[in-house]
Nucleic acid binder design. Structure first.
Length: 470
RNA sequence: GGCCCGUUCGUCUAUCGGUUAGGACACCAGGUUUUCAACCUGGGAAGAGGGGUUCGACUCCCCUACGGGCUGCCA
């Protein structure tokens, strides 16, 4: 059974040298969707073999980011560093099989070689170790690295599900080091050993690894292991088409959380970046899992488009049931360091949510629009709103207040009363709504006045009206 | 420098030799409306350039340009 026929096992393997990059998040999403849509397994491995740059904080940030994005992994998180003995073991097995050899060339010698070659005009100096076929009896008692005995001629073909058939001339590749002189494994060895041991069937990763795949495939061959299905996906660029960097603002996943995009919207947006399923733009996780396929992945780099993310965000907020939305809003408040909602605020917000979510694009946007429900009396009325509360309209509002005193608190009744009062005074509904809006929210921009009255309740509504007309 | 990958509206993309090159976001105009949004209708907007192959190329091949990646005892 080939890797393509076995139960799917994918993995996300970030190196813990910083926050979870938006590009990495998408790679994780693709792996997750592929596995989850096929009843497969999605594993997580932290590539922490670079002891200089790896930090526990970065690992924690990555796990936190994935958790927020809703990408759950199976089993324990694997630490690549913890598996170093296994890596060394494989390197020595390669030695025993004759597919690797000890190389005693020093870094200084190799550097000197490269310099000399370049000076001679050789543009791609391939270091050929003199120890490749040396008699072990001639080995000095000195530090050495273990190099893979790579084929010198012919070509290595990467059969990639996204990039197609990619051919690399073996002559352009040197004998890569699999085990350093200090006995630690290099990345090229570690990934292969780990992917093999973890049973990974599909390697879905950024195309910055496309060239590496050729050398890694050689390790699979050297060990007689089955080659996984390769799928090298294009990278994500900033809005300007250039490589993603700090300068573009939001490059870390946690920044998107702080910006107030729902995780569901993030998954939807990221999935559409480089992948498509016909004309599907707005979809659920269930649909994404059912539709996601390697064939739908594009071959060119995509740019980040915050406008589209925002639009999708608004659609997801509107589509989320109130009962699920409220906890998400509270989580956002906490994540962005804002004060938690009081019981009263929560109750009022919950009642107005159905109307608010239709008009908000992000959580901060929703909070802003929910201002009327979050402030307490006396409501602060800004200058523009105060203009609508002139003596004439205050009189009308006073009358309206009386009319609302014993009203049954339903939309129909409220609309009836407000238009009746408007009619009696010969003013348009718009004018009276403006004053009402000012009294209830203190602003000239707010949700529908009826939605506000319903969310606020009779008691609070009347109290705010009395405050404004006093 | 070398090797590898890529190039359809401003952006994300559909198209898998024959379409008036479709959709979405954004933008513009109009409509609706108690404000703002939302919503509805309409509009402008694309195959990098040049050679082939073919009855016919956005689709296949080559070259150029541009963009990206790799080229470590980093991952």
């Amino acid at each position: 059974m080939s890797a393509a026929e076995k139960p799917v096992v994918t993995r996300f393997a970030p190196s813990p040298t910083g926050y979870l990059h938006i590009g990495g998040a998408r790679t994780a999403l693709f792996n997750w969707l592929y596995a989850r849509g096929r009843k497969g397994t999605f594993l997580l491995r932290i590539e922490d073999t670079d002891r200089e740059r790896s930090t526990p904080e970065a690992t924690a940030a990555i796990l936190k980011g994935l958790t927020w994005l809703g990408l759950d992994w199976d089993g324990e998180v694997v630490s690549q560093f913890a598996r170093k003995d296994r890596h060394a073991e494989v390197a020595h097995e390669m030695l025993a099989r004759g597919t690797a050899y000890r190389c005693f060339s020093t870094q200084a010698e190799i550097e000197a070689f490269r310099e000399a070659e370049k000076a001679r005009g050789v543009s791609y100096p391939v270091f050929l170790s003199p120890w490749r076929d040396a008699d072990p009896a001639s080995h000095p008692d000195a530090p050495y690295v273990i190099r893979m005995k790579a084929p010198r001629t012919g070509e290595t073909v990467i059969d990639d599900r996204v990039q197609g058939r990619v051919v690399i001339q073996n002559a352009t590749l040197d004998d890569m080091i699999v085990l350093r002189s200090d006995g630690t494994p290099t990345y090229m060895l570690a990934v292969v050993v780990d992917d093999h041991d973890m049973g990974v069937t599909h390697v879905i990763r950024g195309d910055d690894h496309l060239n590496n795949a050729a050398r890694q495939q050689m390790v699979y061959n050297a060990m007689g292991w089955e080659i996984p299905v390769w799928a090298h996906i294009p990278l994500i660029h900033g809005p300007d088409g250039k490589k993603l960097s700090k300068r573009h603002g939001a490059t870390g996943l946690e920044e998107y959380q702080a910006l107030g995009y729902p995780a569901a919207a993030m998954r939807n947006y990221l999935a559409r970046l480089g992948w498509s399923h016909g004309d599907a733009e707005f979809f659920s996780d269930a649909e994404a899992k059912a539709w996601f396929d390697l064939d739908g992945i594009g071959r060119s780099a995509a740019r980040l488009d915050f406008k589209k993310l925002e639009n999708l965000s608004g659609q997801h907020i509107a589509a989320t049931p109130d009962a699920e939305l409220l906890p998400e809003i509270e989580a956002f408040l906490e994540a962005s360091g804002q004060p938690a909602l009081s019981q009263v605020q929560k109750t009022t917000l919950a009642k107005g949510l159905h109307a608010l979510k239709e008009r908000a694009k992000t959580f901060p946007d929703l909070i802003e629009k929910a201002r009327f429900a979050l402030v307490s009396r006396p409501v602060d009325i800004d200058a523009a709103a105060a203009k609508t509360l002139d003596p004439v309209f205050r009189g009308i509002l006073t009358e309206l207040t009386q009319g609302l005193q014993d009203a049954s608190w339903t939309r129909e009744t409220l609309e009836g009363i407000v238009s009746r009062v408007a009619g009696e005074h010969g003013v348009g509904l718009g004018k009276i709504a403006g004053s009402l809006r000012a009294a209830l929210s203190g602003r000239t921009v707010s949700p529908s006045v009826f939605d506000m009255m319903l969310a606020l309740g009779q008691e609070e509504t009347l109290a705010r009206l009395k405050d404004a007309t006093a």
